[in-house]
Design a protein around this nucleic acid. Structure first.
Length: 420
RNA sequence: GUGGGUGUAGCUCAAUAGGUUAGAGCACCUGAUUGUGGUUCAGGAGGUUGUGGGUUCGAGACCCAUCACUCACCCCA
């Protein structure tokens, strides 16, 4: 391959027709299930003010500190391609006063996001997520509904071997207490911690819980659990979420170490993982963010949502069969005199909602039939000089090979009467 | 940002230990006498072996650099 040809940017990919039918089928499923749950689509711009993300996602997170595609535009504004969606949706929610129009707002999205990470399996620089955000209710029913919705989508896609991990990180007050307790516990081990953990010790000690370094995991075995620091209200809330999940017969695993990376999470956090994905095994992550709208200057409004990585979901759907749109009729033409008739006939058939193709390369009869065969058409209509003169077209059944003559002015009616 | 692996035709891969003109399968195109697809047969097109340098009488192969892809770390969906 020529070195000078322009290629797609690293970490981005073209979705060719063979792939895009899978995307369409996934998107159809998402729209169907979310509508069963009463969620409506929201679409937000591809880029936002940089401030939006630094304020909501958190200055110290990897996303904001090193992964955003940001630039200053000609007017001197600092802008960023969306690295995640909750912040954008919350911004739109506030901007349009959705909370005043309706006390509860249930939104879903399917969108492209951008992060400048080193690509690997299931991780790209432009990637796609679907997800939901529900604003307005602090009650555990909505936590359960959101989780059930996610599970329901994955189930409808036929995914197997998924695990739901669940935790509550409480409200800001108890996090402050827990944070202090964790720091106190870790202090004697400080010198044993990795460099990044040492850095997090002050900035965001909860994220040390996420470590994968085995010696740190060992140290953390005896660390205090956040569940012991939850307020009564937080504990009651979490218990009710669990109770609902039991009623809905949704399996979960309590994971006291599950703290989500982004600053805006409160109370319920969850993730759904698959063992069939390699290192990037989370297909869905979410949780409650009761303080987010306030953090962004809006009226305090509780909220909860999740985001799922579509590329990762598609990796799991690999074995599934997808149906391409079938070509139903191929019009074979012979000789230049027939061309006008063919193009008009194709148009008429297409207007009847029949998927119709004809030869665009002025190829031989044989080549056209070959093409028709490759497309797996049900019928071919053959028009040559003979047929043009007699007004009798040949309609060939590709399965049986049988042909019958049909008058030109009855062909639409005839084709409509056939089964495809 | 760090580390490993891999770069040969559109795709999947060959090319003994460095030795002529780099091959095969699939896909593509043409043909097998008049205007009929699938199967078969015959033929054709398609490559500066990612790129640049080096070692050698001789490099697809060995060495160095570079780029790309890929997997993993960090982190995340």
């Amino acid at each position: 391959m020529n070195n000078k040809t322009i290629r797609a940017i690293k970490g981005t990919q073209d979705i060719l027709p063979e792939e895009s039918i899978k995307w369409q089928s996934l998107e159809d499923q998402i729209r169907k299930i979310t509508s069963h749950y009463g969620y409506h689509e929201i679409r937000t711009p591809a880029f936002e003010k940089t401030k939006l993300f630094s304020r909501s996602v958190g200055e110290e997170t990897d996303i904001v500190s090193k992964e955003m595609y940001s630039w200053t535009d000609q007017g001197g504004e600092d802008l960023t391609l969306k690295p995640e969606l909750t912040a954008s949706v919350a911004r739109a929610f506030i901007q349009h006063n959705l909370g005043r129009i309706n006390p509860i707002n249930k939104l879903y999205y399917i969108d492209a996001l951008f992060r400048r990470e080193r690509p690997q399996k299931g991780r790209y620089r432009q990637f796609h997520q679907f997800g939901v955000e529900a604003f307005g209710s602090e009650h555990p029913e909505i936590d359960a509904e959101v989780i059930a919705l996610a599970i329901s989508i994955f189930k409808s896609l036929g995914l197997e071997g998924l695990k739901l991990n669940l935790n509550s990180i409480g409200s800001p007050e108890c996090r402050i207490n827990y944070r202090a307790a964790l720091q106190k516990f870790l202090k004697p081990h400080f010198s044993e911690l990795t460099e990044t953990s040492q850095k997090r010790f002050n900035d965001n000690p909860l994220r040390i819980l996420d470590t994968k370094a085995s010696h740190e995991i060992k140290i953390l075995e005896d660390a205090p659990n956040i569940s012991d620091y939850l307020t009564n209200e937080d504990q009651t809330h979490f218990n009710e979420v669990i109770e609902y999940l039991d009623i809905l017969e949704i399996q979960y695993k309590l994971m006291p170490r599950l703290v989500r990376g982004l600053d805006y999470y409160t109370r319920t956090t969850f993730e759904i993982t698959s063992s069939n994905l390699g290192a990037q095994n989370a297909i869905c992550g979410g949780g409650r963010y009761d303080g987010l709208t306030e953090m962004l200057g809006g009226k305090p409004t509780p909220g909860i949502g999740f985001a799922a990585g579509m590329e990762r979901v598609l990796l799991l759907m690999k074995s599934k069969q997808f149906n391409k749109n079938k070509v139903q009729i191929y019009i074979v033409s012979l000789g230049e005199k027939t061309r006008a008739t063919v193009i008009k006939l194709a148009q008429d058939l297409r207007n009847q909602s029949l998927n119709t193709e004809f030869d665009l390369l002025r190829r031989s009869l044989k080549a056209q039939l070959k093409e028709a065969n490759k497309m797996n058409v049900k019928y071919a209509i053959i028009i040559g000089d003979k047929e043009l003169e007699s007004n009798q077209l040949e309609v060939k059944d590709f399965l049986t090979g049988n042909q019958q003559k049909v008058e030109l002015n009855k062909i639409i009616e005839h084709m409509n009467s056939l089964s495809f």
